[in-house]
Design a protein around this nucleic acid. Structure first.
Lengths: 232, 232
DNA sequence: GCGATCCTTCGGTACCGGCCGAAAGGACGC
DNA sequence: GCGTCCTTTCGGCCGGTACCGAAGGATCGC
């Protein structure tokens, strides 16, 4: 019965605060350099190297060496989902941000952000709810895109039907939002939807982090497509 | 940014082989005594006590003291789901069971077992597939019970509609099977379905563990309800 | 009450693993 | 080639923690 040791090894990868901070940072879906992660986690570069080795050997991260930089990234959506799931399981903590900068930054994150490759925060939940109200998404029997929803994605939004074929990754999945405690749309459809909203300029990134905001044109477009809502 | 330490603390609970073995054993959904878990994990009772303290303080387990026994149990479906998710993420390992007893036991587990409170293994996947073919379950757009599926559960199977109302727990969820690498039905519907199959004598537990088998009457009933299939 | 069983508390030991600094290895730009 | 920047390797320190055995409640059956 050595599956226990497998489970323990996997959990051990996330059981260190420094590695956990790195993985949470990588949840934005982008590739970070080793030095950036070291600074973010507050450890020496040599320490970061060791941690990255373990995370890569354990299959949670993949690396791409480019010149004198080493870029690392989450190994895939399933890893991102795993980390989000674990985060959601942690007890909700009272936000005790100190200072104005920290407060506004955390408020922005709660309002809207990306979660690996799809939308999360109040914005993500609002879009998910809007789609549910419009009959595009079924949350009563589980979590699935309806036939009308598929037509909406490929027709109205103009997504490529070929790219929405569920292969290894399911078309739709609920992802528990750790600020809203509600489900939002993840999976293939969630990723493609987020990509489209960014491409159309309906949602824009704030700074260089995970926070995003709904643009005025996006607000108009979404209330047109999904009906009026209180998305801010 | 102390959410990293929360994540690390949670992961640390599962990052020890002994605690991992305990949690995997508890995945059968039953309550175990501290002594049983100690023997199962191969440690002294005093060591087991310390581990159980940590797991309970961390919210993964709940305890019920009864006489001189202390029964512990997984804290809920979300914890079970978390552990299953982590297990599914570990690399598939070639089964190297030694001895006839171990081989037949592991074959029985692969054939059919309970996963916390629902069916898993080839049996669980076969039932899930049968329901999908019969239009009771939608796996093309995500994972959800269809209206026909809900009618089937409450009508044909005679489940109480009141008990199938999704509250905190979703009605249907896909649970990745770590032997079959396929999704099977979990969530409220999966639990109630499993309960009904056991109550009807269509599925019976083998010995005292997680393994289950389809009875002859169950084979007949399921092929009647879901159409012919290669369930063994 | 008394032994048996189950669990817990408490010391003490050993080991794993995270951390750093110093020095070395590569890659870039000039 | 040469300095600079990013990363890695190595040695050494230190704290946390998993483990056990022995002793001490707690509960049950008789």
């Amino acid at each position: 019965m050595t599956s226990a040791s497998d489970l323990a090894s996997l959990a051990a990868l996330l059981a260190d605060e420094t590695r956990a901070a790195m993985c949470l940072a990588l949840l934005d879906g982008r590739a970070w350099t080793a030095g950036e992660l070291a600074r973010h986690a507050g450890v020496a570069p040599s320490t970061a190297t060791e941690h990255l080795h373990r995370l890569i050997d354990g299959g949670l991260l993949v690396e791409r060496r480019q010149g004198r930089h080493r870029y690392v990234q989450l190994a895939g959506p399933s890893v991102a989902h795993l980390i989000e799931d674990l985060s959601a399981q942690t007890a909700p903590r009272p936000v005790a941000a100190r200072g104005l900068r920290a407060v506004t930054a955390s408020a922005a994150l709660r309002r809207g952000r990306t979660c690996y490759d799809h939308l999360a925060g109040r914005l993500g939940v609002a879009v998910t709810d809007g789609m549910t109200r419009a009959g595009l998404l079924d949350q009563s029997g589980g979590f699935a895109i309806t036939p009308a929803g598929l037509a909406w994605l490929t027709g109205t939004l103009g997504l490529n039907p070929q790219e929405l074929r569920p292969g290894k990754r399911p078309l739709a999945r609920g992802c528990l939002d750790w600020t809203e405690r509600r489900q939002h749309l993840a999976g293939l459809a969630g990723a493609k939807l987020c990509e489209t909203l960014l491409d159309n300029g309906w949602v824009a990134r704030i700074g260089s982090g995970r926070a995003v905001r709904l643009t005025p044109s996006g607000k108009a477009a979404l209330s047109d497509l999904l009906g009026p809502s209180d998305i801010d």
